[in-house]
Design a binder for these strands. Structure first.
Length: 794
RNA sequence: GCUCGGGUGGCGAAAUGGUAGACGCGCUGGUCUUAGGAACCAGUUCCGAAAGGAUUGAGAGUUCGAGUCUCUCCUCGAGCACCA
């Protein structure tokens, strides 16, 4: 009888004592493998099924790579600054410095109970001065390069969290964390100039990432190539209005211009007579929240400004409108071409702008002069019509020609636009890394000299968010001498977005104890890039984008040799309970503890992996865990029995091959089922020693404790994880006798067993006998695919 | 609305264009047992007594052969959402 609990405690202790999960970081002899999972934040809640669903496959993968002969580095730290830790502290009334400490210890114990080979002894915690010192250093490097700057801008304000948020943290107009409705505020805040890296971030060359994640990032960066053009104002020929379009080819159909209410120069384009109306409209749209704008959907509103722009192609005067469907990005004003843009069409309908004219016609042979209903078929590429000298050209070619001619004429140029905004990193919250900047009356904005780092995060009693940073209440912190002139200075009191802390932790792991630098380039370049990065898909446009940006900056500054941080990325799926995401508020959190206690960690983690492909997640149900428990039991019994194993030799090698293939594809579920099949076949008779050794090694990534126990029972003193992955002998993988299916007119009508080297004629002859009664009439076609199928068409 | 994924037994799920439903749960029957929610053996897609027939969300297409490829549609999930 295998006693999981006892055995697991024993092996966890042995692994820790022998340091088997430690990698030789400075001088890896074997090829390195850097296996990382997104580090957790200590929140005070226990580990739930979702954590296990993440960490178990990561660990199985790491153990597999270890058995394959790699020096595997599989560290884990804690993302301990940030809102989860702070909110937990607010809830319990205990200072975050204390709760964080306690929670990390608690979580470490729980993570150790999984029996993973995570290296938790590096003590990487983003809230410790040894770590955030270097987060501040990182800030200074960006500052020096002009990539960190402060400006006043309308920003997203979350009234629930009482802080500003980055664009990435606003979802459907609500705070990503607390779901409060986000409002716009104009504030002076710190930004990272991620937009400088828009183009570089679009390069995914050499990355093995899920297509979907790449698509999401690309969409978020939102590159569009278009044209910026100046239109003259007909009321005042000295004035121009600059518009942006991606469809310059449709300009002959343009019959209005629309400008965003927030446009700084809006009133340059408003006539005196319309001034009052426009002011009213601007006021009204300012009051609308992001959410209200979305609620209105495609219902367009706007008012005339009273001025007109001149269409440079045909000289027509077009009315200018102020309309809030135009966003204050890029030029903040657009040309309206109702026939070729649905929004323009909707707006034109509301404003009763008449007779939108088709410019690009499908196929060129049929088009309507006037568009009564907008249809996206009109949007297709095609042949130019109604377009003066360009009529008859292919529209994409016309676009190029028109744009070059315009550039020569000097009233516009081709440009590339991105929707990515700069990363707002200021937070008016307590539990984060202080921004290392001092404001001096004389010298202005002064960066804290690197030798003065860290800017120590002050202890504050009342850290409940009030809308301004709690750090501002600590006078000894705020008042400081200017590092430049020695005069009176005041510290920046905002803290950094926790995503800054998490954007570089994987660079710290290999050299976590370094007190002289953020990391030693030599060591880090040995380990970077991360070979396998596993974590949730929800970070696609946040952490995963920020980390790439920071890494590229560090690469450009010469601090790292690699251009990308994560070579291969895999997202685990989400485990739901009754179809809903597990959350404490819903009260549907499943705790692994009782199952681990009853069945052991091996059974629990295998059960999670057996649910299905781990990238897909699934709905939690404890029905069925007994199946894995039975398997473990049978497996153990199988290993206890001794036989010569002759009859299982083929099966053993096939199982090794199948498990290898499955794990290689990270299909842990089918790896387990292959082992089940073998166990079911052999558990009553047993295997020979060599066979047991092979099988226990291929089981080891999935059930490490059980595998160690078996290995030891086979008389080995050393850990199974010092061994190497077995190779299936190809001679056992080819069956001598193959059962062929026989199809007649595509329907299966029988089977026949044939030798592996059977000739076509012989096979067909044998098959004909089996399905004789279906072979009526004349045979039209006979099919023989070696190793696969025999077919007749009659 | 746009961009991705999915849709296969009562359930979780397998299937390089080649015998659909491996493996597991559950269920049915049996063996062993004072008893068993333990263990083992057998069965289990649906309809049908059987012969046989049907079957991978719906429909069409390509193919000797389609869960798998192509098109149209339905539906569920995720993400983005007036970026011109």
């Amino acid at each position: 009888m295998y006693e999981a609990t006892k055995s697991e405690a024993k092996w966890q202790k042995k692994w820790r004592e022998s340091g088997i999960y430690k990698a030789d970081l400075k001088n890896p002899v074997k090829p390195k493998y850097y296996n990382v999972t997104m580090f957790p934040y200590p929140s005070g809640d226990k580990l739930h099924v979702g954590h296990w669903y993440n960490y178990a496959p990561v660990d199985s993968w790491g153990r597999y790579m270890k058995l394959k002969g790699f020096e595997v580095f599989q560290p884990m730290g804690f993302d301990s600054f940030g809102l989860p830790a702070e909110n937990y502290a607010i809830k319990t009334g205990v200072h975050p410095a204390e709760t964080t400490r306690a929670n990390i210890e608690k979580m470490k114990e729980q993570i150790r109970a999984i029996g993973g080979m995570f290296d938790l002894d590096l003590n990487l915690e983003t809230s410790s001065p040894e770590y955030y010192k270097w987060t501040q250093w990182l800030f200074l490097q960006l500052y020096k390069k002009g990539l960190a700057y402060r400006r006043e801008a309308p920003v997203n304000w979350c009234p629930g969290c009482m802080t500003v948020l980055a664009n990435e943290q606003v979802q459907e107009g609500k705070c990503e964390r607390c779901k409060s409705e986000v409002v716009q505020k104009k504030l002076r805040q710190w930004f990272f100039k991620i937009t400088d890296y828009s183009e570089k971030l679009l390069d995914y060359d050499g990355l093995d990432w899920p297509e979907k994640t790449i698509a999401m990032q690309k969409h978020w960066i939102g590159k569009s190539e278009g044209v910026e053009a100046d239109f003259r104002i007909s009321e005042d020929q000295s004035k121009k209005i600059r518009i942006f379009t991606t469809r310059f080819d449709t300009i002959y159909g343009t019959n209005f211009v629309a400008i965003a209410p927030e446009h700084p120069k809006l009133f340059d384009y408003v006539s005196d007579s319309e001034r009052a109306v426009v002011e009213k409209y601007v006021e009204a749209s300012k009051k609308k929240s992001e959410l209200e704008r979305q609620m209105e959907g495609k219902q367009k509103t706007g008012v005339k400004t009273g001025m007109h722009a001149i269409n440079p192609m045909n000289g027509e005067a077009m009315p200018i409108y102020v309309a809030d469907f135009v966003l204050m990005y890029g030029t903040g004003s657009v040309m309206g071409t109702p026939a070729h843009d649905e929004r323009d069409f909707q707006f034109a309908k509301v404003m009763k702008i008449l007779a939108p004219q088709v410019i690009v016609a499908k196929d060129g042979d049929k088009y309507e002069d006037d568009v009564a209903e907008w249809s996206d078929t009109l949007h297709d590429d095609g042949i130019m019509v109604n377009s003066g000298p360009y009529t008859g050209m292919k529209n994409r070619e016309a676009l190029e020609k028109m744009a070059s001619e315009m550039e020569i004429a000097g009233w516009g140029k081709k440009i590339v636009n991105y929707r990515l905004r700069d990363w707002l990193i200021s937070r008016q919250r307590y539990w984060g890394a202080p921004i290392p900047i001092i404001y001096c009356e004389k010298c202005g904005e002064v960066p804290v000299p690197e030798k003065d780092l860290p800017v120590v995060h002050p202890h504050v009693k009342d850290y409940v968010p009030k809308g301004t940073s709690p750090l501002a209440t600590v006078e000894e912190f705020v008042n400081v001498a200017c590092p430049k002139c020695g005069g009176a200075g005041k510290r920046e009191v905002d803290t950094m977005d926790t995503f800054v802390c998490s954007s570089w932790y994987f660079l710290r792991y290999p050299d976590a104890g370094n007190s002289a630098a953020a990391w030693d380039k030599k060591i880090v370049d040995k380990w970077m890039p991360v070979d396998m990065y596993i974590g949730g898909a929800e970070h696609a446009c946040m952490h995963l984008l920020y980390a790439r940006f920071i890494h590229k900056v560090m690469n450009d500054l010469g601090f790292v040799g690699s251009a990308e941080p994560f070579k291969r990325l895999v997202h685990q799926g989400t485990v739901t309970k009754d179809g809903a995401k597990m959350s404490k508020s819903k009260g549907n959190v499943v705790s692994p503890d009782e199952f681990v206690e009853k069945y052991g960690s091996d059974v629990f983690r295998m059960y999670l992996m057996f649910m299905g492909p781990f990238t897909e997640g699934g709905d939690w149900s404890d029905r069925g865990i007994t199946g894995i428990a039975r398997f473990v039991d049978r497996f153990w019994r199988c290993m206890e029995l001794e036989s010569d194993g002759a009859e299982f030799e083929v099966k053993v090698h096939q199982t090794v091959a199948r498990v290898t293939e499955s794990i290689e594809k990270m299909n842990f579920n089918t790896a387990i089922s292959a082992l089940m099949e073998l166990t079911n076949a052999a558990f009553a008779k047993g295997l020979n020693k060599r066979q047991k050794e092979m099988i226990s090694i291929v089981l080891a990534p999935l059930a490490p404790h059980l595998a160690e126990e078996v290995w030891e029972s086979l008389g080995h003193g050393e850990s199974i994880f010092t061994k190497s992955w077995p190779k299936a002998d190809p001679k056992f993988l080819v069956k001598d006798v193959i059962t062929y299916g026989i199809q007649v007119n595509g329907k299966l009508r029988g089977t026949v067993d044939l030798g592996k080297d059977v000739e076509k004629e012989e096979a067909l002859a044998a098959a004909r006998v089996v399905v004789a009664k279906y072979l009526t009439g004349e045979a039209k076609k006979e099919i023989f695919v070696a190793g696969k199928i025999i077919g007749f068409v009659v």
